[in-house]
Write a protein that binds this DNA or RNA. Structure first.
Length: 901
RNA sequence: GGGCGAUUAACUCAGCGGUUUAGAGUGCUUCCCUUACAAGGAAGAAGUCGCAGGUUCGAAUCCUGCAUCGCCCA
């Protein structure tokens, strides 16, 4: 690596673009991201695999930055850190994209065979897959790229099939005709989780049906009048006196003129609409259940694409929404539409295609969940797996308690094909088998027909839900054969359970819950110990960032503009766990400015070094120097606090603390105080060396957050022995309790406050920083006087001071600006310059403030309840506060009087 | 309809075990190109902690109710 840099080589503004690629390659080429099992403690994270054909968005940026912070810190802590990257085939999302692309070329899916379509899909994947992985490198993700997996790779594919067979054999998977969510656009079933309910303004149509053999009518209310064509009953509440006499009679459905029974069921809400419900068992979940209960006919009036089928009798082939209008028109003309009511209604949309979901009776594969879910529920509730923040436990628990069977089949081609083979048309004429040969064997056995051959059986056309593959992710990335063999290989043994999972709450049910279920079912052990839920990235108007809105900045462009480190900390700064992040570019600016600040601190130190400068290997402070002791104390105090924050996943808190340590303590005070005494002179060697030593420690603490700039500076500070001597694999600073000194910190804080008071006086009285002042300090006691005297140099360093006096006993000077800090008085005689009224005002303001404070303290102490009940320690503290405040007030009042003399 | 959460400075948010008259960043005001950094420095203004009760010696913090907003589930 380069030798230490001479100052003239260092640009005034940090230029991140010039170093990022260099260091990323350096890390990767040296194998720092790669992990192999060894005797160290393992620290494992599996990435939430992004869609293989996706591109990086702000959500990924946030999520993966957090993972990288965790992984880098663990690596520095000496753990065997392994972050497994990869991508997901994302069945429906990818297939929809491929279909769309083909459509542009004038090809429809129906024109192609399964094999031809899959060829297109793989082409698409080869072309776009990997883009997002490349983008993750740009953000600094320290993934073990040698372990990159894709959920549709052969062995992972096989693991999913094994899983299906295993669960089928254990009796958890079944095939059945049930109500499912149908996406007419993608023409596939969806799980409940893939349906998004949106509240909408809609209309409630009141339609009257004639009662058979009478002049009576019954009026029903519906939001979906087109489904009238498939009605097979009318239902009222048995308690409803209005309709008592109708029960048992027959109603005639408009248009189709079907005769249907009027039945009673307490499911009907008497308050809703007319209190009279039409029943369409084929197109509504609740109606289906009523239909089952009352043994009603089921008429399916829709085709797979959402057009009306022959069963509808009317408008065959017309789209469902067009048919709605036509039905309304018809009812209007026949005088059967009696009222239209405005109302809000929840409508289900497909998560992927945004088509309105059609509840549909369909033959699908399901996974029985209640039993499987039990250990997964328990182990989150008892914190065996911890959620951060823990508030998400509630919704997890609620979902688990009401868990429903999972529809796992999808009418798609892109994914793992269901390993079921059919040999007849009967309900049970199928077998589940891994290969065709095995299927023939099983089919012969089950059917009793020994002559069955290849041509007599055919495999299920459908594939499995994407999440049925990704729920195995934490297991199969290490050992794809485990599901089949049940015997863990060395890798699974070592890396499983993983430690932390970082993901968005949006996929808690889709993915997190199911991974936990699969973990316990197959591995008998949790898949991870902690789940960190990030917020959702929104724009400044709280809108979720989305492509269609065009409100999402391109993270790659942001990184180019502000530097990767800048964007990383900019995002982390205002995103505590589980809180949505309202993203604005200003955040990146803040991050970039921080990088620049660090860069200039480094630049300044470098400007002071010469050819001969040597920087000691370890930090040895000057024990006689308060500033050194204070800085060391602050560093260790912060190490302790950061460790605590990180352990409880308060990542933004940890970042704030290191930010403040570097900017406020190190840059604003420490560097100022090690500067050379004469303008233009270099910082004395020993001081410079210690400055670099401190800086090196700070860079380590910052590395997980800002990997690039810290690595760059690391190599400039001193010549590194070899490539292994890189900050990414350096050791995380150890906390040393001995280094923390309350008394040193208290003394230095007092001096800081005094300096600030002097600056305030200068500002109030418009004194230039260059004007020399005389400083007279009346210390609160001998000890303080002595300490201030010993550290007189600090005052001179930071202020232009002609004479300095610090005594416990001394005569107060007249006509001075003054301040009282913790009982110590400070005077700046300003005869002639001082505006007495202004000074009176200043002091009065401080008196007012302290009087207010004193009042609140006295309020507590005058309260017998407080004195008798509060812990002695607390009471004592209040007494001390009272005493101190009274002393300060006395002095302030005296000083105020002094001005009038 | 059920559940969860939020409401703190102009804005975005911290405030984890109840005890400095509440903190940060941004923005705002004034001054400063002072031997790194104007992407900077210094000083300063700015909050009845959504509303109403309750528990307590003490509540932004705990409890109850209400209002508003958001999310999840049916």
């Amino acid at each position: 690596m380069d030798k230490s840099t001479a100052s003239q080589d260092i640009p005034k503004h940090f230029n991140p673009g010039s170093i990022e690629d260099k260091w990323y390659s350096f890390w990767e080429d040296n194998g720092f991201f790669h992990s192999e099992p060894d005797d160290r403690e393992s620290y494992t994270v599996v990435i939430p695999p992004p869609n293989v054909t996706g591109v990086l968005h702000m959500g990924h940026m946030l999520n993966n930055t957090i993972q990288d912070v965790l992984v880098r810190r663990a690596r520095m802590q000496g753990k065997n850190a392994c972050w497994v990257p990869g991508t997901d085939h994302a069945s429906i999302a990818t297939e929809a994209k491929v279909v769309q692309k083909l459509r542009k070329e004038g090809i429809t899916k129906a024109d192609l065979t399964r094999e031809e379509f899959l060829e297109h899909a793989w082409d698409w994947t080869d072309e776009h897959g990997g883009i997002i992985l490349q983008q993750l490198r740009k953000l600094g993700a320290s993934c073990d790229w040698e372990r990159t997996r894709f959920t549709l790779e052969d062995d992972l594919y096989e693991a999913v099939i094994d899983c299906f067979i295993e669960l089928y054999d254990r009796g958890y998977i079944y095939r059945g005709k049930r109500m499912i969510n149908w996406d007419p656009e993608a023409q596939t079933a969806l799980s409940d989780e893939e349906v998004i309910h949106r509240e909408e303004q809609s209309k409630l149509y009141h339609v009257r049906y004639k009662i058979k053999d009478s002049d009576e009518w019954v009026t029903i209310a519906t939001t979906r009048p087109e489904t009238i064509l498939a009605d097979t009953a009318v239902c009222v509440n048995p308690e409803d006196e209005r309709y008592e006499d109708l029960i048992g009679k027959t109603a005639i459905i408009p248009m189709v003129e079907r005769e249907v029974p009027i039945i009673a069921d307490d499911y009907v809400d008497m308050e809703y609409g007319t209190g009279c419900l039409k029943i369409t068992p084929a197109h509504d979940e609740n109606d289906y259940e009523i239909g089952q209960k009352h043994n009603l006919d089921i008429i399916d009036m829709l085709n797979a694409d959402g057009t009306l089928s022959e069963e509808a009798e009317y408008f065959i082939g017309t789209d469902r929404f067009e048919a709605r209008d036509l039905v309304i028109q018809d009812l209007e003309e026949s005088g059967q539409l009696v009222d239209v009511e405005e109302m809000t209604n929840k409508v289900g949309y497909s998560e992927r295609t945004d088509a309105i979901i059609e509840p549909r009776l369909s033959l699908q594969w399901f996974c029985k969940m209640d039993e499987l879910a039990k250990p997964a529920q328990e182990n989150v509730m008892n914190d065996n797996i911890q959620f951060h923040p823990s508030k998400f436990k509630n919704s997890y628990n609620h979902w688990m308690e009401n868990i429903r069977d999972w529809c796992i089949s999808r009418q798609l081609w892109w994914g793992q094909r269901i390993p079921a083979w059919y040999y007849g048309d009967g309900k049970k004429d199928y077998v589940v088998a891994k290969t065709e040969d095995e299927a023939i064997e099983k089919a012969r056995e089950k059917s009793g027909n020994a002559d069955l051959s290849k041509d007599d059986i055919h495999q299920d056309e459908d594939v499995l839900d994407t999440w049925f593959s990704s729920w195995l992710w934490p297991i199969t990335v290490f050992d794809p054969e485990f599901i089949r063999t049940g015997e863990a290989n060395e890798e699974l043994e070592y890396y499983y359970p993983t430690q932390d999972l970082v993901t968005a709450p949006e996929i808690m049910f889709f993915w997190v819950a199911r991974m936990i279920i699969a973990g316990y079912e197959f591995e008998g052990e949790k898949p991870f110990s902690n789940v960190y839920y990030t917020g959702i990235v929104r724009d400044s108007q709280r809108r979720k960032m989305s492509k269609s809105l065009g409100n999402s900045p391109d993270p790659i462009k942001l990184m180019e503009q502000y530097g990767t480190d800048g964007v990383r900390v900019g995002m982390l700064f205002s995103s505590p766990a589980g809180n949505d992040l309202l993203f604005e570019e200003q955040l990146c600016e803040q991050g970039r400015n921080f990088a620049n600040k660090i860069w200039n601190a480094f630049r300044f130190l470098s400007m002071n070094r010469s050819e001969e400068t040597t920087i000691s290997e370890t930090l040895e402070i000057d024990e006689d120097n308060l500033v050194d002791r204070w800085m060391l104390s602050r560093v260790h105090e912060t190490i302790y606090a950061i460790n605590k924050d990180m352990e409880s996943f308060r990542i933004n808190e940890a970042l704030h603390k290191i930010y403040s340590l570097i900017w406020d303590d190190f840059c604003d005070w420490y560097i100022e105080l090690i500067k050379a005494d004469e303008p233009g002179a270099n910082i004395p060697e020993e001081r410079l060396s210690r400055g670099f030593n401190f800086f090196e420690k700070l860079m380590k603490l910052l590395h997980p957050f800002m990997p690039f700039i810290t690595e760059e500076i690391w190599h400039h500070i001193r010549e590194r022995r070899n490539n292994e001597d890189a900050i990414i694999v350096s050791s995380w600073p150890a906390f040393d309790k001995q280094a923390v000194s309350d008394s040193d910190q208290a003394l230095f804080t007092l001096i800081q406050k005094m300096i600030s008071a002097i600056r305030n006086i200068r500002a109030e009285f418009k004194l230039s920083p260059k004007d020399d002042i005389n400083l007279i300090i009346k210390a609160r006691d001998q000890k303080t006087a002595k300490a201030l005297h010993e550290n007189e140099w600090i005052f001179h360093k930071l202020q232009a001071i002609a004479t300095f006096k610090a005594e416990a006993e001394l005569e107060k000077p007249g006509k001075s600006a003054s301040a009282v800090i913790e009982g110590t008085e400070l005077f700046v005689p300003l005869e002639g310059l001082i505006d007495l009224d202004k000074e009176r005002e200043r002091i009065q303001k401080e008196i007012d403030r302290l009087e207010g404070f004193l009042k609140s303290v006295e309020g507590k102490l005058n309260n017998d309840g407080f004195v008798n009940n509060a812990p002695e320690e607390v009471v004592q503290r209040e007494r001390q506060k009272k005493e101190d405040t009274e002393t300060n007030l006395e002095k302030l009042r005296a000083n105020l009087e002094e001005l009038d003399q």
